[in-house]
């Protein structure tokens, strides 16, 4: 077991643990905060897997923007601070399906890779990813910009009922 494995195990444990707390805690704000921990641990996993750029983007966008947005939403919907007793539905089907999906996938992966070792690739720093992105993936990149614009417009229209209504 190498140092990378140890790091992966540790960060993975943190990520899974925090993820489990996100979906089980009965305090809204804490769920958001556990999400931060989970996303951060995943960013750490990216770093171990030599995906530097992705890791920083993860931190910037997810931890920085998305989580903040989610917390805003929590605030705007006047979620109570503290325990909310009515957050959950009966858990059996959710547990069955979620457990089935997670454990099934895990079993598939474990069965596929066992304990084979692979060498880590070259670092995915900004230069390498940027070269790849603007050489091979330019068109999807540009299309994504259109999608972002559409999402932007859509979000505005959805959240402003006075736009588009007839009266």
């Amino acid at each position: 077991m190498t140092g990378a494995d140890v790091l992966l195990l540790a960060l993975g444990a943190v990520a899974v643990g925090a993820g489990a707390l996100v979906v089980t805690t009965d305090q809204l704000v804490r769920a958001g905060l556990y999400l931060v921990v989970c996303l951060g641990a995943i960013a750490g996993l990216y770093l171990v897997l030599t995906a530097e750029l992705v890791a920083w983007v993860q931190v910037l966008i997810y931890v920085g923007a998305v989580v903040v947005l989610l917390l805003f939403a929590v605030m705007l919907t006047r979620a109570p601070i503290g325990r909310s007793p009515d957050l959950n539905r009966p858990g059996l089907p959710a547990a069955l399906i979620g457990g089935g999906a997670g454990l099934g996938l895990a079993a598939l992966f474990a069965d596929a890779f066992r304990f084979t070792k692979v060498d880590l690739p070259g670092p995915g720093n900004a230069e390498a990813i940027g070269t790849e992105l603007f050489r091979s993936w330019v068109l999807p990149f540009e299309v994504l910009s259109v999608l972002l614009l559409a999402a932007l417009v859509g979000a505005i229209i959805v959240s402003r009922p006075d736009i588009g209504s007839k009266s």
Partner: peptide
């Protein structure tokens, strides 16, 4: 490096996500 570790972590996270989507009643939590 053993890739099975991050793969299994990802699988378990996905399972947790599915569980959360089905379990949660609050749209933000979903």
């Amino acid at each position: 490096m053993r890739p099975v570790i991050p793969y299994v972590v990802a699988a378990l996270l996905f399972g947790a996500g599915v569980y959360g989507v089905l379990r949660r009643r609050n749209a933000v939590l979903v």
